[in-house]
């Protein structure tokens, strides 16, 4: 046993493509599998819950047939869902229209000087930590029951992530790039606009996506407490509970989720469209 066969560790490797080639079938699977898995899990959960409910409590979890028959199938319910969605979406977007500029402004102010950051950061954290539900009576007393308090609640919910992510992005700008601007005698504003903002934009967009995902939810939460006037999906949820129309309540819930996902996807696409050409997170490999 002195002479053993020299063992060879050579193995053949085929080339590794940049992104694994998917082909038509692969693309189709990519498109279909995630929603199917999601939907399958949903159905499974639903069936489990429904199977365990006593018959007289099964109204808590209406069947798909009932959902169609008493909610989605009726044109006036569909119309109500649509108009209420628009109301809720309006509140959510109005809230973002406040929180995004304010958040960006706060981020820039904190970036301007460390002392301002030290002074403001704890306040932002404290503001975020105020339990919104606990101050709703106060808001009602101060601002009444109109649209404004709802918009402000959305703004409060969605603001936090924006200055935090923007500040992180602004602080991570390549020193070399800053030096380049400094050596040309560029002003702070020019440097901010031409170097810091573009560089921080992908980080900011991560914050915007968080904000977007919270916007619809917080709009609905706000509606639960401000029922005056023609409200959105939140009001529909409460009304249908009062009227024992649980099918419509589920319909409103599902629409709200759908709306929330849509807003999130819109911001994700916007970010991808803006940055995929140059940023590592963009995903384009070549």
């Amino acid at each position: 046993m002195t002479q053993t066969q020299p063992s060879s560790n050579l193995t053949a490797h085929s080339p590794v493509p940049f992104t694994a080639e998917r082909g038509t079938l692969g693309n189709l699977l990519m498109l279909l599998v995630p929603p199917l898995v999601l939907f399958g899990m949903f159905i499974l959960l639903y069936a489990m819950v429904r199977a365990n409910l006593e018959p007289h409590r099964q109204f808590l979890m209406p069947s798909g047939y009932e959902l169609w028959d008493k909610a989605f199938g009726l044109s006036d319910v569909r119309w109500e869902l649509l108009t209420r969605s628009l109301t809720t979406l309006g509140i959510a977007l109005a809230g973002l229209c406040i929180s995004i500029p304010v958040g960006i402004l706060l981020g820039v102010i904190m970036f301007r000087a460390t002392i301002l950051e030290r002074a403001m950061f704890p306040n932002i954290v404290a503001f975020q930590s105020i339990p919104t539900l606990a101050i709703i009576p106060l808001i009602q007393t101060a601002l009444g029951f109109g649209t404004l308090p709802k918009v402000l609640i959305v703004a409060k919910f969605t603001m936090f992530a924006i200055p935090i992510t923007l500040l992180l992005g602004l602080k991570s700008v390549d020193r070399g790039i800053i030096n380049l601007f400094r050596l040309q005698g560029a002003s702070w504003r020019t440097t901010l606009v031409k170097a810091c903002f573009p560089s921080a934009a992908p980080a900011l967009f991560a914050g915007l996506r968080i904000a977007a995902s919270l916007a619809v939810i917080s709009a609905i939460v706000s509606e639960l407490f401000f029922l005056a006037g023609r409200g959105g999906l939140g009001q529909m949820i409460i009304n249908s509970k009062i009227d024992f129309k649980y099918e419509q309540m589920y319909a409103a819930l599902m629409t709200a989720t759908f709306l929330s996902v849509c807003v999130y996807i819109a911001f994700t696409w916007l970010g991808h469209w803006l940055f995929s050409d140059w940023h590592e997170s963009g995903g384009k490999e070549t």
């Binding site: 380049l180 005698g185 031409k194 170097a195 573009p198 560089s199 934009a201 940055f275 940023h279």
Partner: peptide, 25 residues
């Protein structure tokens, strides 16, 4: 000057990068 690393702005194309210093001036 050219620094030890190229320090190009990743969000600008080559043309935009070459224009940068002139833009600042």
């Amino acid at each position: 000057y050219t620094f030890q690393d190229a320090t190009l702005l990743p969000w600008r194309k080559v043309l935009g990068n070459v224009e940068l210093l002139m833009e600042l001036r």
